[in-house]
Simulated scan of single mutants.
Amino acid sequence: MSRYRGPKLRISRRLGDLPGLTRKKSNKALPAGEHGQQVRKPSEYSLRLEEKQKLRFNYGLNEKQLLKNIKLAKKVPGSTGIILLQILEMRLDNTVFRLGICPTIPSARQLVNHGHILVNNNVVSISSYQCRPGDTITIKNKVSSIALVKKYMLFPSLVNIPNHLEFNKEMLIAKVNGIIERENVALQLNELLVVEYYSRK
């Protein structure tokens, strides 16, 4: 299944607030669908599926990528759900988004893919690159790159930069100080339901 490229507001109406997907807010109070609200109580499977879809759409992953990250998280000792969130949060595209350089994760991915971002003074154009503590993230010393980032920074994405990152807005230099803590993850979801969803596959 390829990455979703359809209407983003429809997804956020169905799944709730996804800060990485879109900044748009719907004026409609009821969820998407012919009759607005579900009459039936959702099944356990539908609850797990919904949490999994939140993760997929927020971080812009396809099914294969998410499954690969789940398998990777299971190999690391500790809570699989929290480790999965840490793996996804430490991706380069998400780190650029959390620094406030881009309004959404798709725009951060485009910035990375077009070679505007340097990690430890090397151009990294792979958005799934895993940032590590001690990494320095800078903008390419090119007029077009700096102008694009400054334009994006006029409309910051999230209010606060998480504790594991620090960013100098004048010099446009960021540093990864550690691994993100669970309470600093911006997405509201129950990661245990995602692990349960894949444990039954």
Rank of each mutant, 00 (worst) to 15 (best):
148 L>P: 03
21 L>F: 03
192 L>M: 10
93 D>K: 11
12 S>H: 10
55 L>V: 15
126 I>K: 15
15 L>C: 07
54 K>G: 08
23 R>I: 06
48 R>D: 11
25 K>Y: 00
85 L>V: 14
31 P>N: 09
131 C>E: 01
63 E>T: 03
189 L>K: 02
32 A>Q: 02
158 L>S: 08
157 S>T: 04
115 G>I: 09
116 H>I: 03
5 R>G: 06
43 S>R: 12
61 L>Q: 00
63 E>S: 07
127 S>L: 10
117 I>E: 00
48 R>V: 00
125 S>Y: 03
48 R>N: 04
179 I>K: 10
109 R>I: 09
52 K>M: 05
190 N>E: 04
38 Q>E: 09
35 H>R: 15
147 A>I: 08
164 H>N: 09
118 L>C: 09
32 A>T: 09
74 K>C: 06
76 V>E: 13
83 I>R: 11
40 R>E: 13
68 K>E: 06
123 V>R: 15
103 P>K: 10
70 I>N: 01
197 Y>I: 00
43 S>L: 12
50 E>W: 10
43 S>V: 10
133 P>R: 13
90 M>C: 08
117 I>V: 14
149 V>T: 12
94 N>M: 06
13 R>W: 01
193 L>G: 02
26 S>K: 09
128 S>Y: 03
92 L>W: 02
177 N>R: 15
183 E>G: 12
149 V>E: 07
37 Q>W: 14
80 T>G: 08
135 D>N: 07
50 E>F: 11
53 Q>R: 14
83 I>A: 08
92 L>Y: 02
108 A>H: 02
4 Y>L: 11
43 S>K: 13
200 R>S: 04
31 P>L: 06
176 V>H: 02
19 P>A: 10
107 S>P: 08
6 G>D: 13
198 Y>Q: 04
135 D>L: 02
153 M>P: 14
28 K>H: 14
84 L>M: 12
45 Y>D: 14
83 I>H: 07
48 R>M: 13
133 P>H: 05
87 I>P: 11
87 I>G: 05
180 I>T: 06
48 R>K: 15
126 I>L: 12
18 L>M: 05
65 Q>P: 04
55 L>S: 05
35 H>S: 08
24 K>Q: 12
126 I>T: 11
